[in-house]
């Protein structure tokens, strides 16, 4: 079935089964590979993108359910890595292998947009769905606080 998806502000005509997870449409059909596959069952957060600003696990979101909504992926977060989170992530050298980090940043971006100055426990709650096998959690926490500061200044 052919339908139209709006991804990072651009319309894409895709022809896939409507129940195809958005993750695979982004990666295999549209070619945006920044969004990662980790588990396929909404347990790891590597595939996190925004639908109308809300974080969703794209591995468990039917592509057709995103029709008419703004899909934002890591590639669309900023044109030049200038989002406060991206700057803070570099400052704190958060990523190790980096594989989980698109999802981490997208979850964090959704948090900061609804809560510009989150506490540690608010960060923990918002980020609990994102696994990092490399164990960068304390850097992520610090970088989110730093991003909040950057955004304020």
């Amino acid at each position: 079935m052919a339908f139209k998806l709006t991804i990072n502000g651009t319309d894409h005509e895709v022809d896939v089964e409507p129940e195809t997870p958005l993750l695979w449409v982004l990666r295999d059909t549209v070619g945006l590979t920044g969004t990662k596959f980790g588990c396929g069952i909404a347990q790891c957060g590597a595939c996190t993108v925004h639908l109308d600003g809300q974080p969703v696990r794209s591995c468990s979101t039917a592509a057709a359910s995103a029709v008419g909504r703004e899909i934002t992926t890591i590639e669309g977060l900023s044109p030049d890595s200038s989002h406060p989170l991206q700057r803070a992530w570099v400052e704190h050298t958060v990523p190790q292998c980096g594989y989980c980090q698109s999802g981490q940043i997208m979850s964090a971006a959704a948090l900061l947009s609804r809560n510009p100055n989150p506490s540690d426990s608010e960060i923990d709650a918002a980020m609990a769905g994102n696994l990092c096998r490399c164990g960068t959690y304390s850097r992520i926490r610090a970088a989110i606080h730093r991003a909040a500061e950057i955004a304020e200044s």
Binding site: T33, G34, T35, L77, P95, G98, Q101
Partner: peptide, 8 residues
């Protein structure tokens, strides 16, 4: 390589 790992 860290900058490559914050933007996909």
């Amino acid at each position: 390589e860290v900058p490559l790992k914050v933007n996909g």
